[in-house]
Design a protein around this nucleic acid. Sequence first.
DNA 1: AACCCTCCCAACCGCTATTTA
DNA 2: GTAAATAGCGGTTGGGAGGGT
Length: 308
Amino acid sequence: MRKPDAPPSGSSGGGGNKLRKGLWSPEEDEKLMNYMLRNGQGCWSDVARNAGLQRCGKSCRLRWINYLRPDLKRGAFSLQEEELIIHLHSILGNRWSQIAARLPGRTDNEIKNFWNSTIKKRLKNSNNNSGDTETGGGAASLAHVNEHHFQGMYMDSSSSSSASSSSMPGGLFMANQYDLLPLPEVGCGMIRVEDSSYFHEPPTAAQAGLVDNGFYEDSQGVMMVEGGLMGGGCELFVPPLESSQEETAMNDGGAGSMVSSADLSNNGDVNKIQSGVFWEDEDIRVGEWELGDLMKDVSFPFLDFQVE
DNA sequence: AACCCTCCCAACCGCTATTTA
DNA sequence: GTAAATAGCGGTTGGGAGGGT
């Protein structure tokens, strides 16, 4: 923790006008809290100024988001939260803000700290115990370790921020049906392949808003696929990235975590998924890699479905 | 009691993306 | 179209707390 800087000297509040850094004092918290509750969020540099704080807007924003927000849940992570974090991390990589968005009351910073201090260590230990060699801390090994919940493969490319990437420049996650956790607020983050009784009946187009090519969005915003392209209840996850990120990712070969249908080679429709979350009318490419090629040498020893 | 070590986490930093002028 | 300002994200740092010796 950082020592709080000495409070601004005297009543001038100005002498130098230097911005404070370090820990927030209770008085500053109160000022910010009161201001935010009265005025709501606006331009953060205005917040800092108008609330009478010698802080930069950025610092105010962080303090509000990570500590003062009334909807924050404090205290230890529950087992459920922990498992959800592990699951989401296996899908999203180090996109802490997106993980946090699925854990009400938790902040990205909190989750990041929790991951780095607790989960990472634990998973590393269980890696060592099981005799696995460290693969560089990539999500692939992590997903693998959590055996009671995960059977899947994840190749993390996740942008520059994920130093733990595998060498694969594309992201892909596949899991069996039992791995699904509900992801409210996910939007079009996941594609299900209609297949077994595990899935509910697809809604009508009117109910769900038919998107294209047999894809539709269900009541929870989950993208669905009609017609059972794959057997065995396989589900394909598209990490619910914001569209801007996705586009960037696709353009620069970054985190384009794209579905690979079980049948990469013989079903063109799946490879054309796009539009906001889907890619249309072009072969899936991740940087210079064609997904089909990418997948050529990949095996899924732990997937429990058969491609038909 | 004093020292050392490790853990935890608040906050900063640097960067990119987005918005505004 | 461009530059500046702002927002947001993820990585890293540093210091307090607490346990061990």
